[in-house]
Amino acid sequence: MTVSFSYDKPKVLQALRYHFLSRKEIRLMIILVNVFAIVSAALFYLKKILPFAFLVSSFLWFVLMITFWFILPGVIYRKAATFRDHFTMNFEDKGFTLGNERGSRSWEWKALSTYLETPHFFHLYFDSRSFFLVPKIAFSDEQRSEMRDLLRVKVPRS
């Protein structure tokens, strides 16, 4: 199966958010900051702490959310020339090939450590930080189903 695609910036930014929020260490950090904010709000309400502690926890929460929702995806998008290219991918039983106007590269399925399916993309992970986004819009409905089956059989699920 062969697909061709380019990237749509708003969808890529959303996919990068999914990537960041799917990381265990980031989820743990968000949970801890939320628990800290809730505890400080309760203690502030019970007049056990000064308003400063509540303000600090609220500030941390806002900074964390703004960083993972806006800043990091924007920085990654601007730095990666990948998102401005046009690609062709060929998926076969042995592996897959990625190509653009400058060349192509092939991988066996075992090169992927895991995959993640989000509303607009298939995230193909080589390791915990290295991944490639394949837009679902590039596939017909039948191809999308075939791709899911291929990934399910060939690649471990995250």
Rank of each mutant, 00 (worst) to 15 (best):
V75I: 15
R27Y: 14
G74R: 10
F44G: 10
P73I: 11
K79C: 01
M65C: 11
M89H: 02
I76T: 09
E92A: 08
A15F: 08
Y77N: 06
I71V: 14
F54T: 01
I38C: 02
F68W: 07
I31K: 02
A42K: 03
P51W: 13
M29K: 03
I26S: 02
P51Q: 03
F70C: 09
E25M: 12
L13R: 10
F59K: 01
M65W: 13
K24Y: 14
R78I: 03
Y45H: 04
P73G: 06
Y7G: 13
H86Q: 15
I38V: 11
A15H: 06
M89K: 00
D8C: 04
H19M: 07
T82K: 09
L72G: 05
I76R: 10
A53D: 11
A42C: 12
Y18P: 00
L60D: 01
F20T: 10
L32T: 01
V39R: 04
K11Y: 12
F62S: 03
F36G: 00
A15T: 05
F20S: 13
H86S: 15
A80W: 12
V63S: 05
I66H: 10
I71W: 14
V63Y: 07
A81P: 00
K9G: 02
L13C: 07
R78M: 05
F44T: 01
L16Y: 07
M29E: 09
K9M: 13
F91Y: 09
S58P: 04
F83I: 07
S22M: 03
